[in-house]
Design a protein around this nucleic acid. Structure first.
Lengths: 233, 233
DNA sequence: CGATGCGTTGATAACTTTCAAATTTAGTGG
DNA sequence: CCACTAAATTTGAAAGTTATCAACGCATCG
């Protein structure tokens, strides 16, 4: 038997990509059949900052969609390190599993409102409504691609990882060139497989190179996207 | 826009897990509805060592199953490095994509025979036969988990990665405690995100610790599985 | 038998982590 | 609202890990 731990699934529903600087609307403004259905069928729950939404190994009976705030999924490795599986912003769907149990835990990064829907209800709906089924299928494909992109990311240098993270967040959480980060440096480090010090130093380095500005630790302004893209490889 | 390259999907069909040392039958001996159907519907093709089976960005109109030999999928990164996506042994299915194009290239590691089936034919069959549909779904879930396990692997040390690789191969390509590796050190290095020298040195280190023996470079004998498992985390 | 490819080993350099401390920011009670 | 305390972030120095560059050994094959 492989001693590998089970691994969870979290899926982002952003099928609509924002053009850079195109809009200051949060991603949550998107509308699609699946999201609408979840809104209809589900209950809204509020989670205070740092509270647990679900735990690893709990039954994966529900699927979640972020209304406001932000969420992280994570797993504690056997050596005590934490690996962050993903960040979920308004509009994003998370907690959808192929297996019977969650393979990541989920916590609110900031105070968050989340729509909770029975997984059964969604899969049943997908059975009846081909459009929903297609959306679920597409969601799965995007999730697979997202995880595979992570694999490609994790073989790169610290600078490349941070650059890639900034570009990803710029696409998802930016107003113009300004990114508001809901998560801490520790969250970012655990997402990128780096230490908090390396993340901090890398950001400082990018700032020295006038590629970014860091007016406050949670706010980052992109000054030179093409330089970041080059770093990203 | 994210400059991320598209990412491909390759799925292993080994639903039947061998117990360690339980059997010297190759994994390809497995039988299941999907594999049988592919055998029926598909054509067998032979590929010489190092020949291309399909290329990145080609239309993903076919799905493949290894009959004999072994296959690697890979992608060339913008900096020229090669990232190996996975190794496929007899019985394994690869090349199944969610998107319209392959996002990895595939090559025969050794001379290989492969069953090739139209993707359409499989998805159509899955529509008619719920058992096939369930198998495809399960396959997707396993693939997602496999990629997520890679993410967890890639944040670990070189020793942990190599140990994990050996345990994975022991499960898939071993007769008792002896693993016959079809792939080169370079293949392993590109799979684990390490250099060939680091892989070699790590194996030498494990040999010094009498955790493994390396009678020839392509043959590895596990002498202390529990030590490997501990390294694996 | 020499050329060639693959793997191993050695020395050094580059990068990232670790440990420690200083600094800034955020949260809380008065 | 301010002061105080705790938490988060940044910075510095040293240690550890892995990559890079180079050379050597070994087997295969013409």
């Amino acid at each position: 038997m492989l001693p590998q731990p089970a691994v969870g699934t979290s899926i982002r529903s952003n099928s609509i990509r924002q053009m850079p600087q195109a809009s200051s609307q949060p991603v949550g403004a998107e509308r699609n059949a699946l999201a609408q259905s979840m809104q209809m069928m589900g209950a809204v729950m509020s989670f205070p900052r740092n509270s647990e939404i679900f735990g690893e190994n709990e039954p994966a009976d529900y699927v979640y969609r972020v209304i406001s705030g932000s969420v992280r999924t994570y797993k504690i490795l056997s050596d005590g390190r934490r690996q962050v599986g993903g960040f979920y912003l308004p509009g994003d769907i998370f907690g959808l599993e192929f297996a019977e149990e969650h393979t990541f835990s989920a916590e609110a990064i900031t105070d968050a409102k989340v729509v909770v829907v029975k997984r059964n209800a969604i899969t049943a709906l997908a059975g009846r409504d081909p459009a929903i089924g297609r959306e679920l299928f597409a969601l799965t494909g995007r999730e697979l691609r997202r995880v595979q992109d992570r694999v490609l990311l994790l073989v790169k240098s610290a600078q490349e990882r941070v650059a890639s993270f900034l570009l990803e967040m710029a696409e998802r959480a930016s107003a113009g060139n300004t990114i508001e980060l809901p998560m801490s440096r520790q969250d970012i480090a655990d997402y990128l497989g780096l230490t908090i010090e390396t993340v901090s130093r890398t950001l400082t380095g990018l700032e020295s190179a006038t590629t970014i500005e860091v007016p406050t630790s949670r706010r980052i302004v992109l000054r030179n996207r093409s330089a970041l893209s080059r770093l990203n490889g």
